[in-house]
Design a protein around this nucleic acid. Structure first.
Lengths: 229, 229
DNA sequence: TTGAAAAAATGACCTTTATCATATTTCAAA
DNA sequence: TTTGAAATATGATAAAGGTCATTTTTTCAA
């Protein structure tokens, strides 16, 4: 349970920041961000931004988890990414100066800071390390999305589920995976019913263990084998 | 038919460059690139780079067309993007300093120049307009790929074919679409046979006209309607 | 111009996965 | 603790689309 009254998070001691894109900031810059940023406590299922709205800055996740998704024609969500502590969210559309094509929503209660577009762009102009970090990050994500597309196009739902669980293993680290069946289905790109049936298979094959909604992976190797490399 | 003996293309008069990311270069910079770049004539189906190799620079398409694709587990290609005159190819992995996760191959005979990593990174350091153009481009492509993923996950093959043809309409402009059935299938993300059957449907519905492998769109509106906005 | 190879097209069949209906479990508020 | 709503689970069915076999057309080099 997060401290709901915690109104200010200090950048210099922020655990998330150290390994984040903002890890390269010098003291002065950190102080500046710290003074100008806004901190917010978000409840579960609260929206950071919606598709179609215009970016006014970037979000830094101090603590918590955020899903990035698109709504398809029939309103079904496709989850593109799940961001966690230390990640920054919402800067992609900001650079392209176009409305968000994805939406972002917390998956659990979270502490998230906000840095205005102006402040952030200024920092980028004056800090080559930050700038290069961003370019690197954008490139890395482009590669990931190419993989995502190829998987979607060529792999079965079972294979994609295995692949997705490997990604989630990385995100949840030691914790069991804690997503609704619907969100999981929307990440894999399948119907909720199909996903549930496949989870049952995995359970019967001893690959996972399920406690209500929480999923623990028992056999990572088998997941890799199913995901295909 | 391109001039095969044409060994040097001059940047300052390059038609492609004007609207490209390199449009912002000043005279000195253009001269520098011009002196340091390498020009090459590529035959149809020639490789620019392979998955797994390390980027040593960027490719500028002076004339021609290049497919960017990944090979899935069974060797089936998934086309991620088709680049044409004025586009730059291969800089994504260069920034992330990782091996290429996609491959690039000409779809037709092409004139393509090569700028070394060193030269290109130097230009980026000294040219904020170029730098910001790149960041904008990377962001734009990230959005496109999110759409691609959602389409792949939620749309039928028929809808995806319509969507893909709209993209190809943009790429081929006034020219008829000139791709093998296999490449088209690999862009849509389906089996070649399924694609051929759907093309037949489109033909019977008066949406397209086919002359051997070349496809002309007769009814763009209908394509939009099928693609779903 | 022709003949062989590649590409495109068609047919039959079967698997995967979505959809719809319904039952069961879980959870949180009263 | 109860209760109703939401989430999860299961079953039956249908449709979309993949696969394999075969035929027809196109292409290109000799």
């Amino acid at each position: 349970m997060l401290e709901k009254s915690h109104k200010h998070i200090t950048c210099s001691t922020c655990v998330g920041r150290k390994n984040s894109l903002l890890g390269s900031l010098c003291h002065d810059e950190i102080d500046h961000v710290n003074a100008h940023k806004a901190c917010n406590y978000y409840k579960k299922h609260q929206s950071l931004f919606l598709e179609g709205s215009f970016p006014r800055g970037v979000f830094c996740i101090n603590e918590g988890m955020v899903k990035i998704f698109q709504r398809g024609d029939e309103g079904k969500e496709q989850i593109i990414h799940i961001a966690k502590t230390g990640e920054m969210v919402g800067f992609r559309s900001m650079f392209s100066e176009t409305p968000y094509r994805v939406a972002a929503e917390t998956l659990e209660e979270s502490n998230i800071c906000f840095i205005s577009k102006e402040d952030f762009l200024n920092m980028m102009d004056s800090n080559p390390v930050l700038r290069n970090g961003i370019i690197k990050e954008l490139s890395r994500e482009l590669s990931d999305r190419a993989d995502f597309i190829t998987n979607m196009a060529q792999k079965s739902v079972r294979e994609r589920l295995a692949f997705t669980m490997i990604i989630l293993l990385d995100i949840y680290e030691k914790e069991p995976i804690n997503l609704s069946r619907e969100d999981l289905a929307n990440f894999v790109g399948t119907a909720t019913e199909t996903l549930i049936r496949l989870l049952k298979d995995f359970k019967e094959e001893g690959i996972i263990e399920v406690h209500t909604r929480k999923i623990s992976v028992l056999n990572k190797e088998k997941l890799f084998a199913i995901a295909g490399k």
